[in-house]
């Protein structure tokens, strides 16, 4: 029970930090799930995050994996509710208020001001992930390759990521 409450508290808190995308909260996700509560190891977290990129729908549904690993199906359910419900209710409320906020001069300021912070948080998340994931020449090459391919073409991101995995398997077998 205590564990489910910890899960709810941690993921409810993390969800509030996902400004600009799930990656913005990644450093805090690592801090809480790996360093504080020891629910997963850092490699496990990276693996779930990467698998999550291959799953359909919102890209942070991988939080369900952590909940399931810690406390089975109830864990997954509690984590999902904690992750989606608080920000969901907030969005619902603001969505209804939005037309009134139209005349509030600070609305544009909030949007313009939070933009750069969101970009910075996503970049910081990428750096934290890179520290764990890019450990040798192969992984650096794969990351640069996927980056270049996605910048230069309109290919579905799932394709080069699965291809990276296959390269990893082939090189392991050789």
């Amino acid at each position: 029970m205590k564990q489910l409450l910890d899960l709810a508290g941690a993921f409810g808190y993390i969800s509030l930090l996902t400004v600009g995308g799930g990656m913005a909260a990644f450093p805090e996700l690592k801090h809480l799930t790996v360093d504080t509560y020891h629910w997963v190891t850092f490699p496990e977290l990276m693996h779930y995050y990467s698998l999550g990129q291959l799953a359909p729908g919102p890209n942070m549904m991988m939080v369900a994996s952590i909940g399931a690993q810690v406390a089975g199906l109830p864990g997954a359910a509690v984590v999902l509710m904690a992750f989606i419900l608080p920000t969901g209710l907030f969005t619902f409320g603001i969505g209804r208020l939005w037309n009134h906020l139209d005349k509030w001069p600070w609305r544009a300021s909030v949007q313009r001001g939070l933009g750069p912070v969101a970009v910075g948080l996503v970049a910081a998340g990428a750096i934290v992930l890179a520290r764990g994931a890019l450990t040798n020449t192969l992984t650096i090459t794969l990351a640069v390759g996927v980056f270049a391919l996605l910048m230069l073409t309109k290919i579905n991101p799932a394709i080069p990521i699965v291809a990276s995995g296959l390269v990893g398997i082939v090189l392991y077998l050789i």
């Binding site: 996503v122 990351a143 980056f147």
Partner: peptide, 19 residues
């Protein structure tokens, strides 16, 4: 080996999202 390699690919993807 598969999971390590897709994690590396995910770093590339996340960087694109940031850019």
């Amino acid at each position: 080996a598969f999971l390590h390699a897709i994690a590396a690919g995910a770093v590339g993807l996340v960087t694109v999202v940031g850019v």
